[in-house]
């Protein structure tokens, strides 16, 4: 599946589509408060855009999105989510109690932004993790 298909049409369409998909995915992630959608759905779309790149552009896609990047993004995003939980402990709340994340701010407002950042972290980690799974699977289980 890593091989590049020789098709100008596919090439052009992919190059045009991928940014659009990514913009839409970010819209889905950030509008989880108001409409159906959120981190998981948007993260899958981001991953799908990268997989589309992988299928259509072949080797070039590894320059745009390196092999190691997937697990890095996933690890860092999950780490930030965990730290978001620990910050509220620091200021006297319980784990993941967004109302305590920034002392002095209104609790309702803080919960709103807490949900927002949780969704963003989830979106990024789903993106990274799913691309990492795909990249591992297309190697076909090559073990030395």
């Amino acid at each position: 599946m890593t091989g590049r298909f020789e098709s100008v049409f596919l090439d052009v369409v992919t190059r045009a589509m991928v940014p659009l998909i990514q913009v839409f995915a970010f819209y889905i992630i950030t509008h989880g408060h108001y409409s159906p959608g959120g981190g998981f759905q948007g993260g899958v779309m981001l991953a799908a855009s990268i997989i589309l790149l992988r299928i259509a552009l072949g080797e070039e896609s590894y320059r745009r999105f390196p092999r190691e990047a997937g697990i890095w993004i996933a690890g860092v995003a999950t780490l930030l989510f965990t730290l978001l939980g620990f910050v509220s402990i620091l200021f006297g709340g319980n784990f993941l109690e967004y109302a305590y994340v920034v002392p002095g701010m209104d609790a309702v407002e803080l919960r709103y932004w807490g949900i927002f950042f949780a969704e963003v972290f989830i979106g990024f980690l789903v993106w990274g993790a799913l691309v990492a799974i795909y990249d591992a699977l297309v190697t076909g289980g090559v073990e030395a």
């Binding site: 159906p36 959608g37 998981f40 759905q41 899958v44 779309m45 799908a48 799913l130």
Partner: peptide, 11 residues
């Protein structure tokens, strides 16, 4: 539905 379509069907 959105999750199932994205994860279950596509991915």
């Amino acid at each position: 539905a959105l999750t199932e379509a994205a994860l279950g069907a596509a991915l």
